[in-house]
């Protein structure tokens, strides 16, 4: 950050907040966040860890315990920096999301906005080596990804719907998903092997499991629901049913798929 920027910042901020107060939010949105340097993001991180992490988690991935949402992907309540700013400043009425204290400076709130923004990957800032068009072809042809995954209503049911996967997975994560699918498998995609009281074994994706029952989908997409106290046994396989593509696709083909998958978002 240049010295000039540092000196100008208070003036710019005053002008910007003035805009925010006196004009519509679209104008404020146009002005953007003036506090988005690495320094600001780190300051926002420190503030987040102190003030927000109790509910949203130290990794900002949300918490079932508190009901606070994951902030690392697309945000359901705000689609712009101004929207995030306003939520932090005013809270969400009727929820545990309280406003920040009135004496917290707007600049500090903007730093927090910058940090939250840094948690999701803006596709405009990413230049991926792969080809989206080639990736789309690989998805349905050589990769046969569509035998298990749906995109926009087309494809199989044995894996997650990928229609908007670019909103929730970074390119690095998508790469890891394809090469090492057994790492960090979400419980929804574990496999359950159920043996009923007649000795019949049935295996399927773990749609849901709770204290007293479980539900699976078998390979033919049949849905089964079992009370736990009315089956002989059940076993969890905490691996993925997805194969690794490290041996079947070349590095450039994997790059193409990553580029394609990362391009899948709502606005497309």
């Amino acid at each position: 950050m240049s010295n000039l920027t540092t000196q100008l910042r208070p003036l710019l901020t005053a002008a910007f907040i003035g805009l925010l107060l006196s004009t519509s939010s679209s104008l404020a949105e146009d002005a953007g966040n003036l506090y988005n340097t690495t320094f600001d993001i780190n300051a926002g991180l420190r503030y987040f860890e102190r003030q927000c992490s109790r509910c949203h988690g130290f990794d900002a991935k949300g918490s079932d315990e508190t009901g606070a949402p994951d902030l690392t992907g697309r945000l359901s309540r705000a689609s712009s920096e101004v929207g995030i700013f306003n939520i932090i400043r005013t809270g969400i009425p009727g929820t545990a999301m309280l406003p920040v204290a009135a004496d917290v400076a707007d600049a500090q709130v903007w730093q927090l906005v910058a940090y939250i923004g840094s948690l999701s990957t803006d596709p405009a800032n990413i230049d991926l080596p792969g080809s989206i068009v080639s990736g789309a072809g690989l998805f349905t042809n050589k990769g046969a990804c569509n035998s298990c995954h749906m995109i926009d209503g087309q494809g199989g049911r044995q894996g997650p719907d990928l229609s908007r996967v670019g909103e929730r997975r970074s390119p690095e994560e998508l790469l890891s998903d394809m090469l090492t699918p057994h790492t960090d498998v979400a419980p929804r995609w574990w496999t359950m092997r159920v043996t009923d009281n007649d000795g019949v074994v049935r295996e399927g994706l773990r749609m849901n499991e709770d204290s007293f029952s479980l539900r699976i989908m078998d390979n033919d997409a049949n849905l089964w629901s079992y009370p736990k106290n009315q089956i002989a046994s059940f076993e969890r396989l905490e691996t993925s049913t997805m194969p690794s593509y490290s041996q079947t696709l070349s590095d450039s083909e994997v790059d193409d798929l990553v580029a394609y998958l990362f391009s899948l978002r709502k606005e497309n």
């Binding site: 109790r54 509910c55 508190t66 309280l98 204290a101 009135a102």
Partner: peptide
């Protein structure tokens, strides 16, 4: 409106 609570209402 500016309650200080750690863990929910």
């Amino acid at each position: 409106e500016d309650l200080r609570i750690c863990c929910g209402r």
